[in-house]
């Protein structure tokens, strides 16, 4: 394979990765918009990112930042196990939000862990709009 061909393949692969990311993310956002009947605010998503919730069982405060830190463009750390978590912002981590099932799985787990309930479609939309804006 000539160097030129290799380069073309690499460029195409990179481009398709970016396209896939956008498609899944856009599809989720339009589904949330349809279900909730409203548009989204990245500011409200940001507010939710930093909002602290009291966990009655442990007596501790919980928020998205407990594991993902205040800056979603940087890596985080699992609050309990210490395992490294890759950045959430799709601008620095192209693999984020490329799999609809994975998005829903983590929304379910983490919304319940932080707030004690699942997130609404409105909240999910705000949240993804915020992360996408970073």
């Amino acid at each position: 394979m000539k160097t030129q061909n290799v380069l073309i393949v690499i460029v195409l692969m990179a481009a398709s990765g970016v396209l896939t990311a956008n498609t899944v993310l856009e599809e989720r956002l339009s589904t949330y918009a349809k279900n909730s009947g409203s548009s989204f605010s990245s500011q409200q998503g940001k507010d939710l990112w930093f909002k602290e919730f009291h966990d009655a069982e442990t007596g501790k405060q919980r928020s998205c930042t407990s594991c993902h830190t205040k800056d979603a463009t940087r890596g985080g750390k699992h609050a309990k196990t210490g395992k490294a978590i890759d950045p959430l912002a799709p601008s620095v981590n192209h693999e984020r939000f490329t799999d609809a099932k994975k998005i829903e799985k983590w929304f379910k787990r983490n919304c319940k862990w932080v707030m004690g309930r699942e997130c609404s479609d409105q909240e999910k939309g705000n949240f993804l709009s915020y992360l996408r804006s970073l």
Binding site: T58, K80, K101, K105, K108, R109, N110, K112, W113
Partner: peptide, 12 residues
């Protein structure tokens, strides 16, 4: 899995 040692680990 919904109460997994202080975390929520629910899955499909």
């Amino acid at each position: 899995l919904d109460k997994h040692f202080g975390d929520n680990a629910e899955m499909d």
